[in-house]
């Protein structure tokens, strides 16, 4: 019995050490999610109610014009932002990988926006895109009197402004991930390709890009989660405007929780976001875990 005591103590210590994580997981991550999902099926408005109404909140949600715009904005933003960030980030990584001068300086320049918050990003671009004083004014100052770059105040184009700011913020992150991937490729592969007489673009297209699947997946998943979380940028840059043209789902949830006091609708929207994330992330996790098991 005496010999067992230190073991038992260690075991108890381990349980103790894991108790905060376990509590957080059960109470917050599981409990709060269940709570939110439950509320979304009740008749809650300003105050929580326990009247079960099934999916009626979801009917109201998807009939809501603001939600429809939020969702379509998210899709447009998500597709353009991800493609542009991945392409630009990859090209930057490839360019930097060509043994260019001032590599460290360039890398810092491309990555520094990522260190700043979306609020800062949004406010800077709001200023740059300001039609009276911003880039439009600069273009006209150069003598192009009809130069027009007032996307941020037009309802049909404002979402592209969010894309520009988002890409500016995130392309450096993609570059960093891709550069790490490129540097991880065996130097002998490049040598073999040179002996084979392959032109560099061909090596990238046929050999390197297929080898960088993991880097692309990592970057894509990171970008995708920031797409779903998109909130600060819209708040800071346009506050959802003009009108409701740049609303996004996360903002819809927050506004309905705290300003419009419609808890039922807000939680239905939040649950819809969760389902979207699950649809994106679940296949990726499945592939990852299968790959790990195979390895």
């Amino acid at each position: 019995m005496l010999a067992l005591r230190p073991r038992l103590a260690s075991k108890l210590s381990a349980w103790l050490a894991l108790s905060p994580a376990t509590t957080i997981l059960v109470v917050v991550y599981v409990g709060c999610t269940a709570w939110t999902v439950w509320i979304s099926m009740t008749a809650s408005r300003m105050l929580p109610s326990s009247t079960f109404v099934g999916l009626r909140q979801y009917d109201a949600l998807f009939a809501n014009e603001r939600w429809q715009i939020s969702v379509s904005n998210l899709v447009v933003f998500g597709v353009l932002f991800m493609i542009a960030s991945l392409v630009l980030g990859f090209l930057l990584a490839v360019a930097i990988d060509q043994r260019v001068r001032a590599e460290n300086v360039l890398r810092s320049v491309f990555l520094y926006p990522f260190s700043m918050s979306f609020i800062v990003t949004g406010l800077v671009w709001q200023w740059l895109l300001n039609p009276t004083y911003g880039i439009q004014a600069v273009g006209r100052g150069f003598g192009f009197e009809t130069f027009r770059f007032d996307w941020i105040v037009r309802q049909e184009t404002v979402i592209y402004c969010l894309v520009i700011a988002g890409v500016w913020h995130a392309a450096g992150l993609v570059m960093a991930i891709m550069l790490a991937g490129l540097r991880g490729i065996d130097e002998d592969i490049w040598k073999a390709a040179r002996v084979d007489g392959l032109p560099p673009w061909r090596v990238y297209v046929s050999i390197v890009i297929p080898m960088m699947g993991a880097s692309f997946a990592t970057a894509a998943v990171l970008l995708a989660t920031s797409v779903v979380r998109l909130y600060d940028l819209s708040v800071a840059m346009t506050n959802g405007g003009p009108g409701i043209a740049s609303e996004v789902p996360a903002k819809f949830v927050m506004d309905h929780l705290f300003e419009r006091q419609n808890i039922g609708l807000a939680t239905a929207a939040a649950t819809s976001m969760l389902i979207t994330v699950a649809a994106v992330v679940a296949p990726w996790i499945y592939i990852q875990s299968r790959r790990r098991r195979a390895a």
Binding site: V228, A270, M273, L274, V277
Partner: peptide, 13 residues
């Protein structure tokens, strides 16, 4: 897995 869940889910509870 839960690292990917958007904050909006947890905020009200």
């Amino acid at each position: 897995i839960v690292a990917f869940v958007p904050y909006q889910i947890f905020i009200y509870p």
